[in-house]
Nucleic acid binder design. Structure first.
Length: 306
DNA sequence: AGCCAGGCAGAGA
DNA sequence: TCTCTGCATGGC
């Protein structure tokens, strides 16, 4: 339906958790504003508001059509109850994590935006990744129609656009040594040396190999792209938070080697491991008070309290 | 003030 | 194959 200020779309479904989904380190551009979340999906500005019944109201600046693009992006059709049933039985730790962020969905993002964002993520805190990505968009993204005084926001800049920039222009966004990796990978994507849209149609191992060939992309970032944009739900990115939480929950806090942790992960979590990973990651960060949208449930000073 | 951050690449063993 | 180190920048 349409109104003077734009278009509305109503998504019906049980218990979709916008805060947990949009503020769990999968995507970096969503802003919580006046009880809703505002961001850009592809070339569309979107405002999402949670509904009492668990559904979501979406406001757009232009005709959203049937909204299939938004349902796709939000992972709306993912049957999370079935996914929970696929988790290892008897894993009480995982059940607690699921309970703490019920309604969290994995997103299906644009592969280029996801890849570029995670190249910028290495040894950066999420708050800082947000700032760098925002700066990159403000400087080099194309305008997208939006409500408000300004009337527009910026899309995520294309690979071609970034490929044509020099390293100093990228560094100006505050990304430091990652500028060389982002520029080099942008050139590989822009030249057609790799087809990101094709990855989802390849076997996971093959897609992963292709991604790791890119400058600045190793196993962790490859897994993020596979999980957050290609729909490979068995992909399991292992970062410092996952290392920490898996050691705490399954190794009594012992400083076991990453190799050993990865072997455990591979044998334990199964085909929906990617979802399990996201629950554990977000739950652990909630507990550490590192999630802005958590508001009232912040734990103490924000330092890690075991 | 000093440690750490959704890691990766290159060097050397 | 593995371990170690440098890398830019800024939050806490």
């Amino acid at each position: 339906m349409t109104r003077a200020a734009g278009w509305w779309l109503r998504l019906h479904g049980p218990e979709y958790n916008l805060a947990a989904t949009l503020d769990s380190g999968q995507a970096f551009r969503w802003k919580q504003m006046a009880g809703g979340w505002e961001g850009v999906v592809g070339r569309r500005w979107v405002r999402l508001e949670p509904r009492e019944d668990g559904g979501v109201d979406a406001r757009t600046a232009e005709d959203p059509g049937d909204g299939a693009w938004l349902r796709e992006y939000l992972g709306w059709e993912d049957d999370v109850e079935a996914i929970h049933r696929a988790f290892p039985t008897g894993d009480a730790c995982l059940r607690e994590a699921v309970a703490a962020c019920r309604g969290l969905h994995l997103l299906r993002q644009d592969p280029w935006e996801c890849l570029a964002s995670f190249i910028l993520s290495s040894t950066k805190q999420i708050v800082q990744i947000r700032r760098i990505v925002e700066e990159l968009c403000v400087r080099y993204g194309e305008e997208v129609r939006a409500p408000g005084a300004c009337g527009m926001v910026k899309a995520f800049p294309s690979a071609l656009r970034l490929a044509r920039l020099g390293e100093p222009e990228l560094r100006a966004c505050g990304m430091g040594f990652r500028a060389r990796y982002l520029g080099a990978t942008a050139r590989r994507v822009a030249s057609g040396a790799i087809d990101l849209a094709e990855l989802r149609r390849q076997p996971l191992a093959e897609a992963r190999r292709r991604l790791i060939e890119l400058p600045g992309v190793g196993p962790k970032i490859a897994d993020c792209v596979l999980l957050f944009s290609c729909g490979f739900r068995e992909a399991f990115p292992v970062d410092v938070w996952i290392l920490r939480v898996v050691r705490e929950l399954y190794f009594e806090g012992r400083e076991v080697r990453p190799r050993e942790v990865e072997a455990f992960i591979e044998s334990h979590f199964g085909p929906e491991g990617g979802y399990a990973q996201q629950y554990l990651f977000h739950w652990r960060r909630l507990r550490a008070g590192r999630v802005a949208s958590a508001g009232g449930i912040r734990a103490g000073s924000g330092r890690d309290g075991v």
